[in-house]
Amino acid sequence: MMMDIGLVVFGGLSWAMATFLVAAGLTLIFGILHILNFAHGGFFMVGAYLAWAMIEALGGGVSIWTYIAVALVSGAVVGALGVLVDVTIFRRLRDVEDAYALIATYALLMVCIGAIELIWGLDFRAIMPPEALNSALFIGDLIAPTFTIFIIVCGVVVYVALEVFMARTETGKLVRIVAHDAWMARLLGLDVTRIYLITVVISFALAGLAGGLLVANQGLSPELGGVFLLQAFGVVIVGGMGSIRGAFLAALLLGQIESIGGMLFPNYPGIFYLVALAGLLLIRPQGLLTKGRTEWV
């Protein structure tokens, strides 16, 4: 029984941090631009495919540091794509109705999926985790794959880094000002457009990074983005749109629920999370950590 509890908690943590990696960028854009970005799932996949292609080009089995470096490069490339997307699309969406903005990002997701199908095809792709992460730790009776531990550590690192960035750096503080009141920030002479651009680039870079970090152990197919996107949406909404801390906590909570559900009903993976999401939304539609309007932290 102890082992079961350990297994459930560990499984939930792994789900939580993988989802948080995707959700972090999503909640960032929502908090500042007030756009719920469907395309995030698409660019997450672009990051994953890029990482896959780079690792294949390097001959397959890579060391853990190369693996991280590849993920960072994916993040940088997708971040650069973010500049393009912000200038050509997001900037035009500011005066558009919410529903149309939502549909526009949906369209962008379709473009991403189409591009991936054109370049890489529909086949499943898979790569092994780096050698150093391809084993397991034995904690008591619990068997913990090192790659899963790696993902959990990555999730925590990204969370802490984002919190520090937002709370301590000047850019982070500017981003928070714009999130709080963009109109006032503009009156005070801040370059709001530039801060929006920075936000989009960081968010896209996080999507690419998440893709690169999670690429191993995943069957890589154009479907993948949708799966992660839906989970990330849930986390972002439950956490309170725009709150990074909320998303982190929501990921932990939903991860445990999903993990418990997966153990009780192994034939229906993914259902518990959706039921929990619907339930939480009905109890607290504004999210766990927000009071009414979407607010930063």
């Binding site: 526009a104 379709m110 189409g114 370049i119 095809g121």
Partner: peptide
């Protein structure tokens, strides 16, 4: 044309939303 259908419909939709609401 694999993938082209998704891509064209995505681009089309984007253009419609952004340029011809």
């Amino acid at each position: 044309m694999l993938g082209l259908a998704d891509m064209t419909s995505g681009i089309l939709l984007l253009v419609v939303v952004l340029a011809v609401p």
